[in-house]
Design a binder for these strands. Sequence first.
DNA 1: CGGGGCTCCTGTGCGC
DNA 2: TGCGCACAGGAGCCCC
Length: 268
Amino acid sequence: MPELPEVETIKTDLEKIILGKKIKVAEIKAAKIIKEPSAEEFAGKIKEEIIKKIIRRGKYLIFEFLSGKYLVIHLKMTGQLIYGDKNKQSKISFLLGNGQYLNFCDWRLFGEIRLIDDLEKFKGISKLGIEPLDIKFTIRMFYEMIKKKRSKIKSLLMDQSFIAGIGNIYAQESLFKAKIHPAKIALNLSKNESDKLFFSIKEVLTEAIKYRGSSINTYLDLEGRKGSMGERLRIYGRKGKPCFRCKSIVVGMKIAGRGTAFCPNCQK
DNA sequence: CGGGGCTCCTGTGCGC
DNA sequence: TGCGCACAGGAGCCCC
């Protein structure tokens, strides 16, 4: 799914077109995506809400309404938000005050939408760890955090309660950039490795935002366009191909149930 | 605490 | 050609 850079791209695009607009109606074709309240209640409650602010927290996209309520969206693996005409594949369509639609599309139906009164009462958000691009996330803090952990470093990077927003693509990219083996136990990283990984995370995420995210399979931005970060990925999906750095054959393994590619020569 | 497996879904691609 | 399995950007849950 969209990870932090993809959600951030949608967020900044949304800010340009949707602030101050009203949601007239929500048309619900796949009720299972609405997690709370019930789909019927959701449709009734969201009418006439006016969008005051757009927030990203981890991989969550949040609409803050003038009323003080929040629309919380998680795109999971294949969710998309497409703005414009009504979209045939749309699972939830929001008709806006200007006659345009915000379409939530999601062929795997893993996506989640909630309308809630209090953000912090929602566990999915309250348990999230630090934002990796926040200035409060420091090199010193990162080392303090990882030196207590016995888990594999890649599992840790993808743990949303540890750091919010990194998923399977950018965890692999950050580790490749820092030349660290994805299965290395976190507390065994040296201070130097920890520092390299810290900068790699920031650089990889920043680059991915600059190039508007990776469109490996399904991710599209608000206008239905692909991001160009996919062409810039250095390790994700390259199992069996030569490493860009040393030409060794990239290998794959499963970590936390997820496919993981790494260079056995560069990443120690 | 950590990790493995399964689950929610649909679609694609590969090996036999 | 056809079938069945593995796998896909997420993450919660159970169990060990």
